[in-house]
Computed example of a mutant assay.
Amino acid sequence: MEVGIQGVLGSFHDQAATTYFEGKELDLKPFHDFRSLAKAIHARELDYGVMAIENTIAGSILPNYALMNEYDLEVTGEVYIRIEMNLIGHAGVKPESLNQVYSHPMALLQCADFLAEYPRIKLTEFDDTADSVRLIKDEKMLQAGAIASKKAAELFGMEILAENIETNKLNYTRFLIMKSRMNGQTSVPKKASLRIMTKHEPGRLSDVLVVFKEHKINMTKIQSMPVVGQPYRYAFNIDVAWEDYQNYQSALKAIAQSAELIKIHGEYEKGVMP
């Protein structure tokens, strides 16, 4: 099974893919950026793609919502990964002997309290957490470290100098499992990702929310997104969950009275936060 991920092997996208598809033989295809990944999914060059969509600290990844819509990608599942950051370096090196640390800017930010204990270390932003480990290994940078996952340390044969150095221990990222719309649904859906554009009239968004309440639909997320080509018009990316699929279908029919557009990005099983 060919599964596309953003970033290199050993990244958190790698961890998300192997967790979601546990027990299946995977051929992971790394992509440098999310747009290239979305294009490959749309072109059916992959069986699935894994795309981060939100983080409990940083919030929504807005460009990825836009890519879902632009390339008409379908959500077929989700997985939550606890983000555990580790200081990684060459064997025998101590954190206090480092003069530079590389990682993705978000990873550096999420480890700010730990890094503040070593003010002499220069922090250098890099495109990918796992790739920063590859860099310090390949370049034999003995006085440099990287912040990444334990899997990255194992993959590149490097040593964990300090583990779980993230400031907030309840840091999770939600990843969506994406596919082209040519693949069929194979599981009983309990959750959906929707794109809704309401009529440009007072109270129309409120009407939508009331419908969800009346049909016992739990709205787990709402994110406004600008409508390209229509200044100051917004669509709403909404995630909903339910116990009765018929209630969900009835709610969609009722919402149609207040909406100009209802697009179902996908219906899928609910992921479980570890």
Rank of each mutant, 00 (worst) to 15 (best):
E2A: 12
E25F: 08
N218G: 01
L62G: 00
P30A: 04
I88H: 07
S193Y: 02
S193T: 14
D47G: 08
Q249T: 15
N69F: 06
I136Q: 07
R195S: 14
S97A: 09
D33S: 10
N64S: 08
L87I: 08
P189N: 05
K169V: 06
L123P: 07
R44K: 14
K253Q: 15
A259W: 05
G266M: 11
A148Q: 05
L142T: 15
V133E: 03
G23T: 12
A235M: 12
Q143I: 05
G89D: 04
K221Y: 00
K29I: 15
E25K: 13
L9V: 11
L176G: 03
P274Y: 12
V227R: 03
T129S: 13
Q6V: 15
P95M: 01
L37D: 03
I53H: 01
A235L: 11
A153Q: 03
L87E: 02
E166R: 07
A52R: 01
S193V: 03
P189F: 04
N99K: 13
E84I: 13
Y48T: 00
A259S: 12
V272K: 15
Q246M: 14
G49H: 00
P95G: 06
L67K: 06
I5K: 05
E269M: 15
M106C: 05
T124G: 01
L73I: 14
A259P: 11
A254N: 11
L87D: 08
D207V: 02
H200S: 11
A38C: 06
F212L: 12
E267N: 04
N99G: 11
G89S: 08
G59I: 07
G49S: 03
H13R: 01
I57T: 04
K169P: 02
G203Q: 08
R120Q: 15
K29R: 13
K94A: 05
L28P: 09
A162W: 10
V133F: 09
D239G: 15
L26V: 09
L135D: 03
Y80N: 13
L46Q: 03
N168L: 10
